[in-house]
Design a protein around this nucleic acid. Structure first.
Lengths: 150, 150
DNA sequence: GCATATATTTAGGCCCGCTTAACTATTCAG
DNA sequence: CTGAATAGTTAAGCGGGCCTAAATATATGC
């Protein structure tokens, strides 16, 4: 595992630790709510996009539009999304999150970041400043590179 | 969404971006390999633990040992794990990753960190130093707090 | 040694996610 | 206006993940 480069090693070790803790919480939350990974993926896609069509979600998840249609039907029944006709193109549907859907996504995000929030709360102001600097560097690079289409 | 605290905002924005990109790659890899989230979870648990029993994995995933047993059977058939009698307690089984299983986990980890590795590659030495400092702070806090039992 | 607890497996059954194929409705190109 | 493309739904069928209940094998306490 050690990679000879201290920076890379530290980065990978951190990813391992962070992903382990945050995904654990996240998956636990999804299971509590009875949501599959596909359903979570759809809700998050809607959260980012605001609204989109059935096959957009299928494409995002890498499944057929038939599969997406069926899965969205279950989300409608759970009142997490609504599906209405697109007035501009009456073949298509406009999917949007309901209030409950919005809330579900927000709570999923909280679950996902909970561990790191706790850890951050234990930092001194000086340490927070150091971490903030790093975050700003990374976020800046992130938007420079391929943050467009996704 | 804005939280009034610049540090917290930056942290959450970063988590959003990182999780979106890295989970996308990760889930894509799992789908390519035909592995469910539960199976991935089991492989990662074994990767961390070295070896464990059937119900350990069930507990970790939050499912019954019956469910774990069935899922592990599929991993055995795919030659990602082996299941052998525990010599110390012949009721139990010792589950271990095969070479293929190890490799699968390693590739999953690569998929998961690929986006951030690429981003890191675009940093200047000075920026890397800043980020490294932050990583060291976070990793130190992480091992101080509840990194034991998990 | 025997009753009880523990570790795992097997069987039956349910629901979900996915696929392909067929069908409906609407839009678009020429 | 007509034929082809596009968006979505529906039906049939497969396989997986999960559960409960029951069975098997082993270990432990008294």
């Amino acid at each position: 595992m050690p990679n000879a480069d201290p920076f890379t090693d530290a980065l990978h070790e951190w990813i391992e630790s962070f992903m382990h803790h945050s995904m654990r919480n996240f998956i636990l939350y999804a299971k509590e709510k009875g949501l599959s990974m596909s359903q979570i993926g759809a809700l998050f896609h809607l959260h980012r996009m605001g609204t989109c069509g059935v096959s957009d979600i299928g494409d995002d998840l890498g499944v057929t539009s038939a599969a997406a249609s069926q899965m969205l039907e279950r989300l409608v029944q759970q009142e997490l999304i609504t599906r209405s006709e697109d007035p501009n193109d009456r073949r298509g549907k406009q999917i949007i999150l309901t209030d409950r859907g919005q809330q579900t996504v927000r709570q999923a995000i909280l679950a996902r970041q909970h561990w790191l929030d706790q850890l951050a709360a234990s930092l001194t102001p000086g340490e927070k400043q150091q971490v903030l600097t790093a975050l700003q560097i990374l976020t800046a690079r992130s938007s420079q590179l391929g943050d467009g289409p996704n």
